[in-house]
């Protein structure tokens, strides 16, 4: 009599249950992880290569590369370089000044537009307006640059004169001599228009996440729409708005073409925002690149590294602000 036990080998032994992925999955996970790490690799390579090219300049100038403001390349009659001084301070000041002007102008406009879209606009209108804002985010920067130069400049110059007339007693609004065109203020306005779509869409996203029960509770307590916005929506969205504004700040700091077109690039520290002289690091690179000798290009690489680190820092802070406000139980 044959029992099942005697038929050795015919009963399959129990399969080992394991969470070990199969070979194909191992390959798949490896490839995808490698792809995912590409952003790390690329960012790392950017830092390494710019640092490698700019190292000589950074080592020679040291801290004065970002604290002094002189960009001099002296050549003798044979074209050999005799003396160089590279200091980025004027352009760093210009970068931060333009970006801050842009944020100061863009944030109130963007936040009120986002509030309008989230709480006031009827649905059909909202769809159209959101599309327009998304479209605006896709406009290339060269478009903003030449529009700013040819169309916005006359109006913005007039606004600058108004500000100077009524607020001229504040030191930063002084203009002497009276040159109002191509000032950091106008560049700031153009940058503001460029970052408005980013800040608006991030703010709108945060507003749309406001818990509905709290909004309804506020209405049930007799709040008006403005009360709801001020006491429920704005406190809830504060972190997201700050984070979105900092993303906009980072974008404004790195902008090249629009600033180069609109701004009169002069190598001096200029705190008078309405006066027609300024610059930023990115536009300096574009300006000097054309006629630079290999040695000066190294300095431009170092300037690029400083700009890269600056935008990375701003983006990191923005990320921290957004996540921290996202995890806190408001």
């Amino acid at each position: 009599m044959t029992t099942l036990e005697s038929q050795a080998g015919r009963i399959p032994s129990p399969r080992e249950i394991t969470t070990e992925p199969r070979f194909s999955d191992k390959v798949f996970r490896g490839v995808v992880t490698a792809g995912g790490l590409s952003s790390l690799v690329i960012l790392g390579l950017i830092a390494i290569f710019l640092g490698y090219q700019g190292f000589e300049i950074l080592a020679k100038e040291g801290i004065s590369f970002i604290t002094t403001s002189e960009w001099v390349v002296e050549v003798d009659s044979f074209g050999a370089i005799t003396n160089t001084t590279f200091g980025l301070a004027a352009m760093l000041v210009g970068t931060i000044l333009c970006a801050i002007i842009a944020v100061v102008i863009a944030v109130p406009i963007s936040v009120s537009a986002a509030i309008f879209l989230s709480f006031y606009a009827p649905n059909s209108l909202k769809k159209v307006l959101v599309s327009v804002i998304d479209l605006m985010a896709a406009f290339p920067s060269i478009l903003f640059g030449f529009w700013g130069l040819f169309v916005l400049m006359p109006s913005a110059e007039y606004w600058a004169k108004l500000i100077n007339k009524y607020l001229g007693f504040i030191p930063i609004f002084e203009v002497e001599p009276r040159i109002f065109t191509r000032s950091p203020f106008i560049a700031g306005v153009v940058l503001a228009i460029m970052i408005i779509p980013i800040v608006t869409s991030i703010s709108r996203e945060v507003f749309s996440q406001t818990p509905l029960d709290r909004i309804q509770a506020a209405y049930a307590l007799g709040a008006t729409r403005w009360n709801v916005i001020r006491t429920v929506a704005l406190p809830y969205a504060r972190g997201g708005i700050v984070g979105g504004s900092m993303l906009g700040l980072g974008r404004a700091m790195g902008e090249t073409v629009a600033v180069y077109t609109v701004l009169n690039i002069v190598y001096q520290i200029n705190w008078n925002v309405l006066f027609g002289a300024g610059g930023n690091v990115a536009s300096l690179i574009l300006l000097k690149f054309g006629e630079a000798q290999p040695y000066e290009i190294k300095a431009l690489m170092a300037a690029g590294l400083v700009l890269f680190m600056l935008t990375l820092l701003v983006n990191f802070l923005a990320d921290q602000v957004i996540t921290r406000s996202g995890t806190k139980g408001r």
Binding site: T33, G36, S39, F49, A282, L307, V314
Partner: peptide, 30 residues
């Protein structure tokens, strides 16, 4: 995959979208 690196990679992608275009140009140049 949602591995341990999800958070940092999401941040790096965000940071990469903030890389100024001129820096990308300089990087390829160097």
């Amino acid at each position: 995959i949602k591995g341990r690196l999800t958070r940092p990679i999401r941040f790096l992608v965000q940071a990469m979208s903030g890389v100024p275009s001129i820096v990308a140009g300089l990087f390829i140049l160097s």
